[in-house]
């Protein structure tokens, strides 16, 4: 997997400063490994059995991608409240195209991605044209998309679509679920985008300091549209994974994704003010949340404790980040 691309990035370039250890990604990685080992031991190795492990990673794919979808808009200091419902809409559209319109699976997948991208671009354009706060714009589009999502098939469930796609959703490669590998590949691409492409760097410049970016000839409007478009596209990706992995979709898909989409990047060290992203941090945070999830299933804990724990973790992560920031400011 690609390394994190904080804009503060390349902190340890050449390893000269040995600062790798103070980066939030490092803490998260240690926590993730420790948690995984601890859970494996506590379940007497049950976690490492083929079925459990497979399920663990398969249902990690969507949280990773949806976290990234939120992260790309956080990068410019905005939010996208519509990621969850958009994932649902894209999934419903894909299923509808296969079942009702009889389109082959690859075309349906492309269409789902297209819907996501288009909706994201609309978000971005609305923000740029109306100059209304991104939070409010996506609040409105979230509501609209909610209606559209329901409109595709009413309260009914789509199932029995493309066998090939569903097989792909349950298939494994090198012992890992295909959808998980796919999610990692997407994460790598996002990391590449922010780390190495001109558009990605300009987007981070917009997030870091819009005025300075403008002075350097960066079009902030363009960055906003690209960020929202990419966010929508990633929601489309999450939808494709959902359609493949779950075998059936209905209009409630995505309802439980909006808040977790914020949890992963925030725990992963992404600042709400923009300018800083961390692909690795977001992925690791999603991993940690999934770990808590599995722990609940293994020990038959009331699932509601999960939310309580995630809430505490989000707050803890942010507080830790603030403390770290204060410390690093105190010792220049």
């Amino acid at each position: 997997m690609s390394t994190g691309t904080t804009t503060a990035g390349r902190t340890g370039s050449g390893g000269r400063f040995g600062r790798v250890t103070v980066r939030p990604e490092f803490t998260l990685a240690v926590l993730a490994v420790a948690g995984f080992v601890a859970l494996a031991v506590a379940t007497d190795g049950n976690l490492l059995t083929r079925g459990t492990l497979d399920a663990f990673f398969r249902f990690l794919a969507v949280p990773i991608v949806i976290g990234l979808a939120q992260m790309v808009v956080l990068a410019i200091g905005q939010m996208n409240l519509s990621v969850g419902t958009l994932t649902g809409l894209c999934a419903m559209v894909a299923a509808w195209l296969m079942l009702e319109a009889g389109l082959p699976a690859p075309l349906a997948v492309l269409a789902a991605l297209g819907v996501g991208l288009a909706a994201g671009l609309v978000n971005g354009l609305l923000v740029v044209i109306t100059r209304i706060n991104g939070f409010v714009v996506t609040l409105a589009t979230m509501t609209i998309i909610e209606g559209l999502r329901y409109g595709v098939n009413g309260p009914d469930t789509f199932q029995g679509y493309s066998q090939g796609l569903r097989d792909l959703g349950t298939a494994s490669v090198l012992g890992l679920p295909v959808v998980f590998v796919f999610a990692l590949a997407v994460a790598a691409l996002v990391a590449l985008f922010f780390g190495r492409t001109v558009a990605g760097r300009q987007l981070l410049a917009t997030g870091g300091s819009p005025f300075a970016a403008r002075l350097s000839g960066v079009s902030n409007d363009r960055s906003i549209v690209i960020a929202h478009g990419l966010s929508g596209l990633l929601a489309g990706v999450a939808a494709v994974i959902t359609v493949a992995a779950s075998g059936s979709v209905n209009s409630s898909i995505g309802d439980d994704l909006m808040l977790p989409s914020f949890a992963a990047p925030i725990i992963g060290g992404v600042a709400l003010t923009g300018g800083v992203v961390s692909v690795a941090g977001t992925c690791l945070a999603a991993f940690l949340v999934r770990l808590v999830d599995v722990m609940q299933a293994q020990f038959d804990i009331n699932p509601r404790w999960i939310d309580l724990i995630v809430g505490a973790v989000v707050l803890g992560a942010v507080l830790l980040g603030t403390v770290r920031q204060k410390l690093s400011k105190g010792s220049p």
């Binding site: 939010m79 808040l259 949890a263 709400l272 939310d307 309580l308 809430g311 505490a312 989000v314 707050l315």
Partner: peptide
Amino acid sequence: FVVTLAMDFALVG
């Protein structure tokens, strides 16, 4: 946003 979001998670459980 973050504080109340975390609080929401905690309270829902």
